[in-house]
Design a binder for these strands. Sequence first.
DNA 1: GCCAATATTGGGATAGTTTACCAATTGAAC
DNA 2: GTTCAATTGGTAAACTATCCCAATATTGGC
Lengths: 153, 153
Amino acid sequence: MPELDAIDRKILALLQTDSRLTMQELADKVGLSVSPCHRRVKLLEERGVISRYVATVDQKALGLHVSVFISIKLARQKEEDLNRFARAISKWDEVLECYLMTGNRDYLLRVVAADLASYETFLKTKLTRLDGIASIESSFALSQVKYSIALPV
Amino acid sequence: MPELDAIDRKILALLQTDSRLTMQELADKVGLSVSPCHRRVKLLEERGVISRYVATVDQKALGLHVSVFISIKLARQKEEDLNRFARAISKWDEVLECYLMTGNRDYLLRVVAADLASYETFLKTKLTRLDGIASIESSFALSQVKYSIALPV
DNA sequence: GCCAATATTGGGATAGTTTACCAATTGAAC
DNA sequence: GTTCAATTGGTAAACTATCCCAATATTGGC
């Protein structure tokens, strides 16, 4: 696995911000001509450094006004319990993020919903129906101060 | 602001997963020909429903092995204090997400770092140097169980 | 420090994609 | 059932990605 040099990192920074740049524009910005720039991008894709290209959608435009962080403790933390939990939440589109945590909770989830009523529906019809959950604690976000997909390079 | 119909939502779902689909492929998948499909995508862009196109980068490939959630309380919560805090964290690339929260903390941040040492540097040279912070509590993620950018449509 | 081997770069040609225009079709209101 | 407005589909032109090959730069050995 070869290292990422300064130009690779610049390419990543730019594509994380705007993947619709043409190769010509990207090449100009990183100080290469189109061919080597193109080759570098393809290599970054093949090596899995660039994993995908996506459109980002405005949460308010979709009417998703509620963002909730949920702390979850499981009754048991055996590997099988963890895997079962991970499989379940992976299926649910409302769950955008889920982390296995250190400290006094097992999981931290970020969930979005249209309003409190549909969040309640999510809780009642999905999350609380899972076996092996010891406790659930919801924390509501008043506003999104910052949201970025761009990892520091 | 016209409503999003079923085809618009299908377009959004597909582009949130893969924005590199050609108009031909996208049109086939939603059951339109290229022209109307292209017109709909452009409208979604103009109306801000699609906000941008980005490449997603693999966190491990960049060597960013540490993900931390930070709970922060401010000494005061006047609008000016909140704005000052928001401006500061917005500048820092390590902070990927920041939410103003209800409950017993003011902010929840998601921060990434290469290792514990560089996280410590972030804390010491940036976060703890801010004025007006009453408390900071770090919660470490052991692993990312789910991470999605695709909002439910 | 020089040379050979290797990797990287740049330009040009081609295939593929986006985009704009216009006619045809569909749907809705009266 | 007819008219008007909105949406659709096809075609052509402009733009972009992609591949190939020659030229240039970099690295390692001596």
